[in-house]
Every structure is written in C-alpha cells, then in structure tokens.
C-alpha cells in the first residue's frame, strides 16, 4: 500500500468505490459538519472536504476534515494552489498527514474572482500537476520540493480532478496522462450529466491504458430543481447539462422534481458503472447531504465494503 488510506484499500481490493463530499460552513459552527457527517457515515468510503470552493471563505478543509474524522469518517482533504505557495502547501501536507487524514485531492483552485474576495491576491506558485508531483515526491522519495530530505513521509493517497467536458476535448486525456505521470493515484471527475460524452472520454482513457494506472471515480450529483439545473447549464464553466435532463425534471409535478433529480442521479450512476475503467463514483451532494443514503442505496451500492 502506498498510503494509510481506506479508499486505497477499497479500490485495490476491486470494490466499486463511493466517495462523498462535504462543504464546510462559512462560520465556526462545528455542528454543521457533525450533522452532514451523519448523513455520509456508512454510505461512502471517503469524504472530500472542499478548500474554499468558488473562492468563498469557509472553514479550512483540514480543520473540517478533523471534525468529520472524529465522527468516524475517512477523509480526503482538498488542497488548492490559489491561496498557498509551495512552502505553505508542504507545511499543510505534513500537517494533514500527521493528523491522520489519508487522502488528498490536488487542485489548482477556483479563481479568486468568482468568490467573495475578488480583490485578493491569487498565489498560483504551483499548478495542480506540480502539486501532485510534489506530494508524490514527499511520499515516495521523502523529499521536499527543494530536494531536502525528511525523516517521516506523508503517506497520502493522491487524488486529482479531471473535467471531460472542458475544451479542447482531444487534449483532455493527454492532460489526464500528465496527472497520472505526476503521481495521481485516483481521479475524481467533474459532475457528469452527459454520459455519452463521458463515455467517449473514457474510450480515449482506455486507449491510452490510463484506466490501468489510475482509479477513475466518475463525478455525479443530484439536481434539486429545474432552476438549479439551468444554473449549472448556463453559469458553471466546464459543466454540461443536456436539455434531456431538464426536460425530465420538467416532466414531473413540482413536488416530485427533487425525487426525479435523485432518480436521474441513480440512473447516471448505473450507466457510468457499466463503462469499462470506471472504478467508482464521487457523489457531490453539496447542500443536499440528506439525499446521499437514498442515492447510494438505490444504486445498489450498500453496504459499503469493510476492507482491513
């Protein structure tokens, strides 16, 4: 095993993995995290905590990870390059590993212009691929980015993101290959609504044999309303929501829309599961953690495996 991660064990033993996501509060209240943790516990193999998603100030990912870990969850810290240079990143990497957080998702980060402090200075000393490589060198070579050696290395399972829906489509798989070469152990994709396009991306992934080098978790999420679907379709860069999804939501009575959103999510899980090379799903029910159990259960993914 490369790491101390439960997620790594689940994936290595060939189980179809399920990861979840938890958005930390924009305040100090630890109860928010404990409440969300309850909905996730037993339903997923590991839980990501976002790191200032959309560049809005929220509780630090590592701190929220620690609170949720105390509730018995396996955690994945998300770490972005937006707010930290390589010195701060490495200090945080040492810290999270020492705290028993075993997975890390390496991201460049949402640009500060999207958040509530657009006047902040963006750091971007490294990009996501350089961050992946740095964590790998810390873990496998016991080396800091500068080349100095350390005594006890961070045994982290290294994750990265991939967006099959961004452009240029033909280059997306090459960039994934760069992430794998940099040291990514697992990939969590952008939320998939256009399964056909995702399947085409996976064809290219398999053509390069990348599915054998990295564990790919397909990103999925339930949609709560037609408005939310439209918002994702028009306002979220790099996300594709086909009109057929919106029509399905519109086709049911108003009080049934959120139920239909869950059904669509379950259908997508079933479809991506059939695609060769997909090792699991990453369920992003941010702000709708209550739905996680129903989705995972309906998709036939319960109980979660206990791997020792």
């Amino acid at each position: 095993m490369k790491s101390k991660s439960n997620l790594e064990k689940v994936l290595e033993s060939g189980h179809f993995a399920v990861t979840g996501e938890l958005g930390p509060p924009a305040c100090v209240d630890p109860e928010v995290i404990r409440r969300k943790a309850k909905y996730l516990k037993g339903n997923v193999d590991a839980v990501n905590v976002t790191d200032g998603q959309t560049a809005v100030v929220r509780m630090a990912s590592w701190a929220a990870c620690l609170l949720a870990k105390a509730e018995g969850l396996e955690m994945t810290v998300q770490m972005t390059c937006r707010d930290r240079n390589r010195i701060a990143l490495q200090m945080d990497i040492l810290g999270v590993a020492a705290l028993g957080i075993n997975n890390i998702l390496c991201l460049t980060g949402d640009h500060q212009m999207f958040g509530n402090h657009p006047m902040a200075k963006g750091v971007y000393d490294l990009d996501s691929i350089q961050l992946i490589k740095m964590v790998k060198d810390m873990r496998d070579e016991r080396k800091f980015q500068c080349g100095d050696e350390m005594e006890v290395e961070p045994r982290l399972f290294i994750g990265a993101a991939a967006n099959p829906f961004a452009d240029p489509f033909e280059f997306r798989v090459f960039r994934l290959a760069n992430k794998v070469a940099a040291g990514a152990d697992f990939i969590q994709t952008q939320i998939i609504f256009n399964v056909d396009k995702f399947a085409r991306w996976m064809d290219a992934v398999r053509e390069k044999g990348l599915h054998e080098k990295v564990q790919i978790l397909a990103g999925v999420a339930p949609i709560k309303s037609v408005g939310a679907a439209r918002y994702m379709q028009n306002k979220v860069p790099g996300m594709e929501v086909p009109e057929t999804i919106i029509e399905r939501l519109k086709g049911v009575p108003k009080e049934e829309v959120s139920k239909e959103g869950i059904k669509i999510c379950v259908d997508i899980i079933r479809q991506v599961r059939e695609i060769k090379g997909v090792a699991g799903i990453h369920l992003m029910a941010i702000g709708w953690e209550e739905a996680v159990h129903e989705i995972v259960e309906s998709a036939g993914l319960l109980p979660r495996p206990q791997v020792s």
Binding site: D127, S128, I129, Q130, A161, N163, A166, D167, P168, Q190
Partner: peptide, 8 residues
Amino acid sequence: NGPCGGSQ
C-alpha cells in the same frame, strides 16, 4: 500545465 477545467 494547462488547460484547466474552465477552458470552454
């Protein structure tokens, strides 16, 4: 090492 996921 781009492009990021926001290239559209």
